[in-house]
């Protein structure tokens, strides 16, 4: 028992544990919308795009959270705009924007490497650099996102499920989508420190997928996914210390193990529920002029 509690003696671990738990809950909450709207690719791409801002702000000596946050928000809104306008394929547009941003981050680290936070920590996550201020930042982001989800619950649900009818019913789906992108960018930013950009997408997808296997109710899925995200963050961070493995991979592996357990328990019933989740070739936000993502065509 003492051995299990020993890491709590270290401030860096306590900070990392709080950040991992809150970040897990945050990603679990936001991930529900990401998965149901078929935005996993956007989540994956956005985390890579934010890496560019992370690298640039770290090397320029700008506050990393602020710099990467502005970069992430700009990328999110750009992706949202391109996706809605459908000038080119949204998956192609996202691929160009996000990989270019990621490549810029890599290039900056290659040229100016050695300053600011480490390259490995940004890619794979680390709890060593988590300060008290970071802890409060993650708690604040989680609380802000929870408030958005709480008070925007009905509009978010309607826009996610049926954007055309939501629009016709007076919901500003374009604003809701933009808000969701900003929330996603904030969640990725808050999580990146512990998980790293390469693994953020996993914590956005695994908790809601597990939750979906356990329930067919949207409200219960939202609560379950948030709880599962927090649990995997907490357990993963503890295991990370005891196994001496980086926090990001450990948290993701805990989530994957939980998925396997739930799959074993619920079997095909659970899988049937997840059938069709995120099965879209291209991520689609509520399109303009009422064209639905599942509709056969505009006629």
């Amino acid at each position: 028992m003492q051995e299990l509690l020993r890491p709590f003696d270290f401030e860096f671990f306590r900070n990392g544990l709080v950040v991992a738990t809150f970040a897990g809950a945050l990603c679990g909450m936001v991930g529900v919308y990401v998965v149901l709207k078929g935005m996993s690719y956007i989540g994956h791409g956005l985390s890579h795009a934010i890496f560019g801002g992370f690298a640039a702000s770290a090397l320029l000596g700008v506050n990393v959270v602020l710099g990467a946050g502005v970069w992430g928000a700009a990328s999110a809104l750009m992706i949202s705009g391109i996706t809605r306008r459908r000038v080119i394929g949204s998956d192609a547009a996202i691929g160009v924007i996000t990989t270019a941003s990621f490549a810029l981050g890599l290039a900056l680290f290659a040229v100016f490497g050695g300053r600011g936070r480490s390259f490995d920590a940004a890619l794979f996550g680390s709890i060593l650099g988590v300060s008290g201020a970071d802890v409060w930042a993650v708690i604040a982001v989680t609380a802000a996102v929870a408030l958005v989800v709480f008070f925007g619950y009905r509009q978010l649900l309607f826009t996610t499920f049926d954007p055309e009818v939501a629009e016709a019913s007076g919901v500003h789906t374009a604003r809701v989508d933009a808000l969701l992108m900003l929330v996603l960018a904030a969640a990725i930013l808050a999580t990146m420190q512990v998980l790293g950009v390469t693994l953020v997408a996993a914590v956005l997808v695994i908790p809601p997928t597990i939750a979906r296997m356990l329930t067919s109710s949207f409200s219960r899925m939202l609560l379950l996914s948030t709880g599962i995200g927090a649990l995997t963050g907490f357990v993963g961070m503890n295991l990370s210390y005891h196994l001496d493995v980086q926090s990001g991979p450990t948290i993701v592996l805990v989530g994957a193990a939980l998925f396997a357990v739930v799959f074993a328990v619920t079997g095909t019933r659970g899988l049937r529920r997840t059938a069709g989740l995120d099965d879209h070739a291209a991520p689609v936000l509520a399109p303009p002029h009422g064209r639905r993502r599942h509709a056969g065509g505009p006629y």
Partner: peptide, 15 residues
């Protein structure tokens, strides 16, 4: 407005 049943995402978790 009642959409076409083919246009509904039946895997969506909603009661």
């Amino acid at each position: 407005y009642v959409p076409q049943v083919e246009a509904v995402d039946w895997s969506f978790p909603v009661t």
